[in-house]
């Protein structure tokens, strides 16, 4: 296409300017701060990095973030894909889609409130206000302290809240992409004698690949800095700490900008594989033109 030298910059100029001001400049400042003690008092060398990689709570946060990235991404993307594909086949698609989407619209305070009423614990013999324990005791079991069952159960239960909230995002994006696959492609495969699973594997999945890449990238990036669910539900206690919550505490509660910045820098480094993956996708798309 005919594009001058200046024209592209007119298109991306405003975006680049804003990004540099709001995100690049603070990031550079953050990298700088990560090599200083406290609020920038004296040069720390690598001390903050050593601390972050040896501190027990931060190490727990690394483990939990890994758990979030794997479990949260897997489930939001698979559920989103399942809803996108399955709902296309039923007449009540719009209603169900709205139901799945509603959690995205609920504020974090509202979501936290309702999940408290699912995970709440009351002593045996007193009325259970938590749904899970009402079911457990209804079957004659002992009430369970769901959010204190470290380290696996409580983390998974927090991730469930995230999946509930964010599957709607994956569904909207994937469903739109699915509806755009030319139906003739699928029909042709069916006429060739492929069953539904084969159609899914040979036509649907390859066609959805770019959309899946986008959704998975967004989820991984989002969950790397997962904060609010943990902040309002456990605040990282009972072994549920995550990096962004740790960073928040170091920064605003303990006023240790050095350590908080170090955690932020590590988040930036963790994104590198995702960027490499995306640049490949980017090139692939352009090659096919």
């Amino acid at each position: 296409m005919r594009t001058g030298r200046v024209q592209p910059w007119l298109f991306i100029g405003p975006a680049v300017g804003l990004l540099v001001f709001f995100l690049v400049y603070p990031s550079i400042y953050t990298i700088f701060l990560s090599f200083f003690y406290g609020m920038g008092e004296s040069f720390a060398g690598w001390a903050n990095y050593v601390h972050v990689f040896t501190d027990r709570t931060t190490l727990t946060a690394f483990r939990n973030n890994a758990l979030w990235v794997v479990v949260f991404t897997t489930f939001t993307v698979s559920f989103g894909l399942a809803f996108a594909v399955l709902l296309d086949r039923v007449r009540y698609e719009k209603i169900i889609k709205s139901i799945i989407f509603i959690p995205m619209a609920i504020s974090m305070v509202g979501a936290a409130t309702i999940w408290r009423f699912i995970y709440a614990f009351r002593p045996e013999g007193s009325p259970q206000v938590g749904l899970l324990n009402a079911i457990v005791t209804g079957f004659g079991g002992q009430p369970v302290g769901w959010l204190t069952e470290a380290p696996w159960l409580n983390n998974f239960l927090l991730i469930v809240v995230g999946i509930w909230m964010w599957t709607g995002f994956c569904m909207v994006v994937l469903s739109a992409a699915y509806k755009n696959i030319p139906r003739e492609l699928m029909e042709a495969a069916r006429i060739d004698g492929a069953n539904e699973w084969q159609v899914f594997g040979k036509v649907t999945l390859p066609s959805l690949k770019p959309a899946l890449a986008v959704v998975a990238t967004t989820m991984v990036v989002f969950v790397l800095k997962i904060f609010d669910i943990v902040f309002v539900m456990t605040d990282g206690l009972f072994g549920t700490e995550v990096l962004a919550n740790r960073m928040y505490k170091e920064m605003f509660l303990f006023m240790d900008f050095g350590r908080a910045s170090t955690i932020a820098v590590i988040l930036l480094l963790l994104i590198i594989p995702v960027m490499v993956f995306n640049i490949r996708q980017f090139r692939e798309q352009e090659m096919l033109r």
Partner: peptide, 17 residues
């Protein structure tokens, strides 16, 4: 509620017992 109760019952609701 034992130790689990101590950790999970909101302080504001605790005295209701």
């Amino acid at each position: 509620g034992g130790t689990v109760g101590a950790l999970t019952i909101p302080f504001s609701e605790s005295p209701n017992a």
